[in-house]
Design a binder for these strands. Structure first.
Length: 280
DNA sequence: CGATTATCCTGTGCGC
DNA sequence: TGCGCACAGGATAATC
């Protein structure tokens, strides 16, 4: 399930493969794939050259030479895959972009939670290729790789909700999902079910450091591919960070820090993997 | 207002 | 071996 490290891996591959290339044609077949406006409006991107690809949290933003930006979110099961025109079309392929001299980019999404939409910056400084200037992304908190201890201190102060619930709330901090929230809490030695407002300054500092180090290590490993094999990079390859997971999906297995079994906490419909000994 | 719950979907894996 | 079903969880709307 793509979170910040997976989306960042895809972003870097997109830049490498398609930046500087002209979009010759595109087709959208999925009924739910473009749902914020008419799918035909995507035609505005035809003949545009891709300048860069940005990211804020789990959102990808394609910037073109003229014309609106294209925003993509993979949600639960979305994949962006590089392909050649003759390649067999995978089931649940909902959109195909064809670039001059760079082959195709295909959007595949069995559960159809993912989406594509066009967006234009609210204020339009021509040189700004900043995802955060897009009104549809304005509700997002700071990107998890940019968030400071001060950001988190303000966002968590007085909150009774569990720390993990706040970490995966994109309005608080953008990019963290179920897997990395657990890994970050373990690395920061904080229980995910602690009230967000109970963290002191030392806790917050550990949380920010853990966030950065876990996400950067996961990017270096090209993301996490779980047993369901759902996440793939642009070339269809798996990530490797799942091999470095310390708690996520490891209920009953020994904690990497102390050897005691990892537990699975549940509250409501949510759950978290935690070491009851290493995290407090 | 903040916290919780339901909803959107399909593939997977479990129990019987 | 097969069938039914709970589960997976990202974001948003609705509700308490």
């Amino acid at each position: 399930l793509p979170e910040l490290p997976e989306v960042e891996t895809v972003r870097r591959d997109l830049l490498r493969l398609y930046a500087g290339h002209r979009l010759k044609s595109l087709s959208v077949s999925g009924r739910r794939t473009v749902r914020r406006h008419s799918p035909e409006q995507l035609g505005a991107l035809r003949e545009k050259i891709l300048l860069s690809v940005g990211r804020h949290g789990k959102y990808l933003v394609f910037f073109w030479e003229g014309g609106p930006s294209l925003v993509a979110h993979l949600r639960m099961s979305g994949q962006l895959l590089a392909a050649s025109p003759g390649d067999p079309v995978a089931p649940h392929t909902h959109a195909v972009f064809s670039f001059d001299g760079a082959g195709e980019l295909r959007f595949v999404d069995p559960r159809t939670f993912g989406e594509l939409f066009l967006s234009t910056p609210a204020a339009a400084p021509p040189m700004a290729s900043s995802p955060s200037a897009l009104p549809e992304l304005a509700h997002l908190g700071p990107d998890a790789l940019m968030a400071t201890a001060r950001d988190l201190s303000c966002a968590l102060a007085g909150r009774h909700a569990p720390l993990k619930a706040l970490l995966v709330d994109q309005r608080v901090i953008a990019g963290i999902g179920n897997i990395y929230a657990d890994e970050i809490c373990w690395k920061a030695r904080l229980r995910p079910d602690r009230p967000g407002g109970s963290l002191d300054q030392a806790d917050l500092r550990r949380l920010v450091r853990a966030t950065r180090s876990v996400l950067l290590a996961a990017i270096a490993a090209r993301g996490s591919t779980l047993a369901d094999r759902r996440y793939r990079d642009l070339g269809g390859s798996a990530g490797a960070y799942q091999l470095e997971h310390r708690v996520y999906g490891r209920a009953g297995l020994p904690c990497a820090g102390c050897g005691r079994p990892v537990e699975r906490l549940r509250w409501g419909a949510k759950s978290a993997y935690v070491c009851g000994s290493c995290q407090a």
